[in-house]
Every structure is written in C-alpha cells, then in structure tokens.
Design a protein around this nucleic acid. Structure first.
Length: 580
DNA sequence: ACTATTGGCGCG
DNA sequence: AAAGCGCGCCAATAGT
C-alpha cells in the first residue's frame, strides 16, 4: 500500500462541472490548487488522484458517479452536497446556521432522475452549479456543522449519507444477479405460458371463469374493485371492501379462487414477464442477467432509501429464487434481527431492554424476562409501541411494556407528544422530522375557535394523533436507517480490504476494484435491514464474517460502549430463496 | 386523450 | 386479525 507521504490525508477535493469543463479545487481552495480540464478527462483524473485517498466533494453523486463507474473508476469517500444540504437545512442541531436560515435555492431542489438512460458525463451538466457555487456551499455546510450543537453526530450522519450515495450508485451499476430462466420457469409454473400481449395467462383466465360462475356474474372483470364488490354483494355476501383479509373471513365457494386470482394477478402485473423485460438486462460480462433498480438515498423522510422504477424494495418472496449467484460465486445474505427495538433500547439507554436483546431474538428475550407470555405477544406489543397502536391486542399489552421498559417507551411516548403538539423530533444522529403542513396547523387553529363544531374538533384531534404516530415512529425508523447506513458503509470498506488481500480478485489498486465482476465481492442489494453481497465462492466465508463485524462496528460507532447487540442471520447461498 | 386519485397489495 | 409506521407500483376510476 501507499505510504502516508503519498496520501492526501483528509484532504477534500471539490469537483464542479461548468460548461463542459471540470474544475478541481483541492482543500477548499485555501492553500489548495485549482485545475481545470475537459469533462472527458474526469475519469482518468479521478483515478489518478484517488490513489491519494481524498474525500471527493461534489454536488450530486447520483449524476456524477455513474459516469465514473462506467469508466471503471471507484472512489473510497465522498461528500454529497445535495444530500447533506437537505439534512442540514432541516436539522434542529444546525437550526442556527446561515445555511438553515437562507432562502430556498438551487441546493434545495431534488433532482428528478432519469429512469432509463445510460449515464454519461453530460449528466454532470444537469447541476446548475458553478465551481464558486460548489466551493461556497461546501463552506456553508462546514460552518453549519462546526457551529452546530453537536458537530460529531452531524459529521457522522453526513458521512453515512454520502457513503450511502456511493453504495447506491455502485449497486445500480453492478446490478443484482438475476436468472431469467428461473424467473420464467416460476412464472410458467404458476400462471401458465407467457400470454400474447394484452391477454391474461391461462391460469388467471381459468380462475376468472370460476369466479364469474360462483358469483353468477358472466361479465365480471375481477380486476375491478367496484364491479367485484357489487358482484359479491349481489351474491349475498356482506362485505365492505374487496381486501383479501376481509374476503378470507367469508365462507363461500368464491373465496378460494378469488384469493388465488388476486395473488397471481398481482404477481403477473407487478413482477411478471413485462417486468423482466423492463428491468432485467444482461450483465456487462455477458453471463447472467442483472436487475438494476434506481436507488434513491434519502428518498424517504425518515432517511430510508426509496427506489424509482422496478419496485426493488418489494421483491416478492415468490420470485426470489431468480436471484442467483453467478457460477463460481455465492450470495451472502444477511438480515439484521429487530433493528428498531434495538436502536430504541440504545438511544434511550434502556439497559433492561438492551439486556432482553442480548440473544439472537429480542422478542423471545421479552418472554424470558416475564414481560409477556408468548413471542407473538412480544412482537405485537413491541410493534405497537413503535407504531403507536392503541387498540386491540397491542393496546392491551402496552402497559406491561411501559412498566418493564419505562426509559425506552418514554422516548417514543415523548416523540409522539411532541408531534401531537406540532413540534419536530430528531433521530439519534440528528435528522429532523419535517414540521406539519400549514393545513395541519389550520385544522388545529380552527378547532380551538369558539364556534368550532364537533366535526372540527374531531378532525383536529385525529390529525394531531396521526402526526404523533408519525413522529413516534420517525425517531426509531430514522435511527434504524442510520444504523443500516453505517453497517453498509463499514461493510463496504471491509469488502474493499478483502478484495485487496485476495490475489484472485485481481489488483484492485488504490482506487478499489475497478470491475467487481472480475473477482471482488460487492454489495448487490439493500433492503432497510438486509444486505446481499455477491462474492466469489472462496471468499464467501470471509465476507460473512465481515458482515457480522460491520454490524457490531455500526453499533459501536453510533452508541459507543452501550451494551446493545445487533445479531444477524447470515446465509451463504446460491439463490436468495434459500436464505429465508 | 390526458393526468390525478383510489383501492389494493408487495416489502421492511 | 389487519388495528398501528414508512414506502412503490399496478389497474381501474375519477376528474379535466
């Protein structure tokens, strides 16, 4: 490896694209140097400088990094100004900053990504930011963090957010290994052969026929909720909706074919052949398919990722067998158990609840501690506490949870109260919830007027409670998202090390694995509390160990030596379906 | 003919 | 069971 003398240490290199030229400003421009060159040279320049391990500061990872990846250039670290601006703009910790009080500007517009075009260097031009803009925004962000109430937390949050942006772009680039033949076989087994364009598969057509016969409705389109509801009621069934759990209650011959129709019709329309054609492409090397969704880091208010196109966060279990490792490769599938209750225990410093989570199963821990009698009750009660359930089983079990874990339940209870009052709450690292809309305040104001009627008061009360449940969940879901980002970022670093130490993985050099397909393990999927790494078979065990170490590392990074554990289910498999 | 909303359901 | 959080996507329907 390179000796310290040849690294830039913690130097920032600012990248700005202006009218077809790239401006590089090292170290914020103060003592640093500026260089300017044509856009086409960017990949080679980055590759050369990356050997010195700088932190790349740029406007938007999603519009710049894909072009670097196309040129087989990867970077270790970055600072994504657009994502970080969004965090700092709303964070309570940086509320006093110039950044937070400035009027909305170009850094506040969320870029609408183009779903299906190959990234080019021209994408960098989409950002209407001059080099001066970029340098100035970087300075504003540094000032906001340095002057904040807790610079350490914000720095960690921004670093995690930025690392996530790199990972998202890399995962889209590398793709999730997808076997079209397996997918087609699954579909054909369940639905019959692929139908001609526009018609129903044989199995769905047969079920539709049965449904029509059972309901004596020869022209019924079972895809139409209003028609179906009318037909059901016409057959003497007292149903309010056509939802499957309501239908499942009925004792009528139409129920089995109807439920099967709904499930298969969903599979056909959401993840059928059309989906495969739209979203599964051949791998770069030519062998095997790749599913390339568009991940949107920070796309959810709580800090979770969203996706755009392909429905990557909703891959049904039915077709997960199509996620298949390449020959000679394995999938390392890791699932973190009960992350939300665990982060709640840690952020509230609730030692009792953390102790209940000492084993692999926190819910069983609640049973063993005598809080509730069954694991099912433990899960219902815990989710009820995180989501704000008031009725039913969860509501009945709540007092026991409150008695056993006053600190943990106190944190979510407090978050709910703040939300009901129209306030904002923050995650462990400082991401702050959005304030309620103007219409929310209007409803509250209306209800407090002397001439407000019962409907006004009920509406205001309901909206207040709704917002309280949102803020209650925000602190937990958002902190869990932070843990997951740190987990992935830590894992990414470990994977780069594993690749660097493996002769068979080629020479990744200091700029990391240029083409992971060539032999380096790489992240291919992320789903809130679950990751998949595609790894050469001989490295899979090392990867599995790295995934566990990364989980523990993320726990320490966020919560120091507070004794909270983040156990994982890890499986080394040939296809995703084998993992669960 | 177009876009926006709704009902429903997949995932965590 | 479907109450209680966060999403994206589809077909059908309502609105223009």
């Amino acid at each position: 490896m390179s000796p310290a003398a040849t690294t830039l240490g913690h130097v920032d290199v600012v990248v700005a694209v202006e009218r077809g030229n790239v401006h590089l400003v090292a170290d914020g421009g103060a003592a640093g140097t500026t260089s300017r060159f044509p856009l086409e040279e960017l990949p080679e320049r980055v590759r050369a400088l990356e050997a010195r391990r700088p932190r790349w500061v740029w406007a938007d990872t999603g519009s710049l990094y894909p072009a670097l990846l196309q040129a087989s250039v990867r970077v270790e670290r970055c600072h994504d100004l657009r994502l970080c601006h969004a965090v700092l703009r709303h964070a309570a910790l940086s509320a006093g900053s110039a950044l937070a009080s400035a009027p909305p500007g170009a850094w506040d517009t969320s870029l609408s990504g183009d779903v299906d075009h190959q990234p080019t260097l021209l994408d960098g031009l989409v950002q209407a930011h001059t080099a001066e803009d970029v340098v100035a925004e970087h300075a504003r962000q540094r000032a906001a963090v340095d002057g904040s109430a807790d610079p350490g937390r914000l720095r960690l949050l921004l670093a995690a957010e930025s690392a996530g942006a790199l990972i998202a772009a890399e995962m889209s680039h590398d793709g999730l290994p997808w076997d079209r033949e397996v997918h087609d076989r699954l579909l054909t087994d369940l639905l019959g052969p692929r139908p001609r364009h526009g018609s129903r598969p044989a199995r769905l057509e047969a079920l539709a026929g049965q449904i029509r016969a059972c309901l004596d409705a020869p022209d019924l389109n079972p895809d139409s909720a209003p028609e179906l509801l009318r037909a059901l009621r016409g057959a003497g069934l007292d149903v309010r909706t056509t939802r499957k759990w309501e239908l499942a209650e009925l004792d009528h011959p139409v129920v089995p074919p109807l439920l099967e129709y709904k499930q298969l019709s969903r599979l056909f329309s959401a993840n059928g052949w059309a989906w495969m054609d739209a979203w599964v492409r051949p791998a770069a090397g030519g062998r095997g398919g790749r599913f390339r969704p568009d991940y949107v880091p920070g796309g959810v208010v709580t800090g979770r990722w969203a996706t755009r196109g392909g429905g990557a966060l909703q891959l049904p279990r039915q077709i997960r067998a199509a996620v298949t490792a390449d020959p000679g490769w394995k999938l390392v599938v890791a699932d973190a158990a009960q992350v939300e209750p665990r982060v709640l225990a840690a952020m509230s410093r609730d030692g009792h609840m953390a102790r209940a989570g000492r084993g692999a199963d926190l819910y069983q821990g609640l049973v063993d501690d005598g809080i509730v009698d069954t694991r099912a009750h433990a899960k219902v009660a815990m989710l009820g506490a995180l989501y704000g359930a008031t009725t039913g089983e969860a509501g009945r079990l709540m007092p026991r949870l409150v008695r056993a874990y006053p600190r943990a339940t106190g944190v979510v209870e407090h978050a709910a109260q703040v939300g009901e009052g129209g306030g904002v709450v923050s995650t462990w690292l400082g991401r702050t919830s959005p304030p309620p809309a103007g219409s929310w305040h209007e409803a509250q104001r209306r209800a407090s007027e002397p001439d407000a009627d019962e409907a006004d008061r009920r509406r205001a009360y309901r909206q207040a409670r709704d917002w309280g449940r949102f803020t209650r969940n925000f602190v937990v879901q958002g902190t869990a998202a932070e843990w997951a980002l740190c987990w992935m970022a830590d894992l990414r670093g470990r994977l780069r090390e594993i690749a660097g130490n493996d002769p068979a993985a080629g020479d990744p050099g200091t700029s990391g694995p240029a083409a992971p397909g060539a032999g380096a393990p790489h992240l291919v999927f992320f789903l809130h509390d679950e990751v998949i790494v595609h790894s050469p078979a001989h490295l899979a065990d090392a990867v599995a160990a790295a995934v566990r170490e990364a989980a523990a590392g993320a726990g320490r990074l966020l919560f120091g030596d507070f004794p909270v554990e983040f156990p994982l289910d890890v499986a080394v498999v040939d296809n995703y379906a084998e993992a669960t």
